[in-house]
């Protein structure tokens, strides 16, 4: 899923400075699962903003609403009636797709991103998420014992590990595991060194972001 993190309250406060009526919009997709922008997080942010305003004696109304998803137009449409209530700012608590879809659908509204979209990843444990994919558009993890060196090696090496791998951790930080250490260890344990000996071919990055913004059209699904 897409892993996101709420922006610091101060930054969000900056978005709504001088505004009196604010709508916080959550998303029940990825950001609910990673505890960044679901109903609960919408409640917390809205409450913090209200308390902050009360503390300063400012007049501020903060409404809350969570959509099924913010990356599909039909759910974005559901906000029509609420938007008619004329908010001074709409804070989207979805990944960056959400505020963009909101801004396109409601061009007159002032839409702000309240989350920082961080990466495509999974939960290692409750409360711990790690990056696992970089959306290069051409998955080859089966060549690496089921691990992705493009997203999980600091240098995206296809023929690692580099000389900075020490004790299973990456040279950039002891907090970062060396994925190539894991790949190499697995290959050796499984006695597959021969199979693994060929050089990984030079990567074609054109299916990645490097080829420009990407779009998929599935004719059989398009109305």
């Amino acid at each position: 899923m897409i892993i996101a993190e709420r922006k610091p309250v101060d930054e969000i406060k900056g978005f709504i400075e001088g505004k009196k009526k604010v709508l916080v919009v959550g998303c029940r997709g990825c950001v609910t699962v990673c505890n960044a922008g679901g109903t609960k997080e919408v409640g917390i942010l809205a409450s913090l903003l209200r308390l902050d305003a009360q503390k300063d004696g400012r007049d501020l109304t903060v409404d809350e609403h969570t959509l099924e998803r913010q990356c599909d137009p039909e759910y974005i449409d559901e906000l029509v009636e609420l938007v008619e209530k004329k908010y001074d700012a709409i804070l989207s608590m979805a990944c960056s797709v959400g505020p963009q879809f909101l801004a396109r659908r409601y061009p007159k509204e002032k839409i702000y991103p309240s989350l920082n979209t961080c990466f495509i990843g999974g939960a290692l444990a409750h409360g711990i998420w790690a990056e696992h994919c970089q959306a290069c558009g051409n998955c080859i993890i089966h060549n690496f014992g089921g691990m992705c060196p493009i997203s999980r090696c600091s240098k995206s090496l296809l023929n690692g590990p580099c000389g900075g791998s020490a004790g299973g951790v990456c040279e950039i930080s002891k907090e970062v595991e060396c994925i190539w250490h894991l790949i190499a260890t697995k290959v050796m344990e499984e006695n597959r060194l021969d199979e693994f000996a060929p050089i990984q071919p030079i990567k074609d990055w054109s299916s990645s972001r490097d080829g420009g913004p990407r779009k998929i059209v599935r004719e059989e699904l398009v109305k």
Binding site: G160, P161, G163, A184, M188, A197, I199
Partner: peptide
Amino acid sequence: AYNPFADPEDYRVHRVAKKVAA
């Protein structure tokens, strides 16, 4: 370049073999 002192130790020579093959 080659680094026999990085980890995993037993794999280092195999990585070097790739550089030789390259």
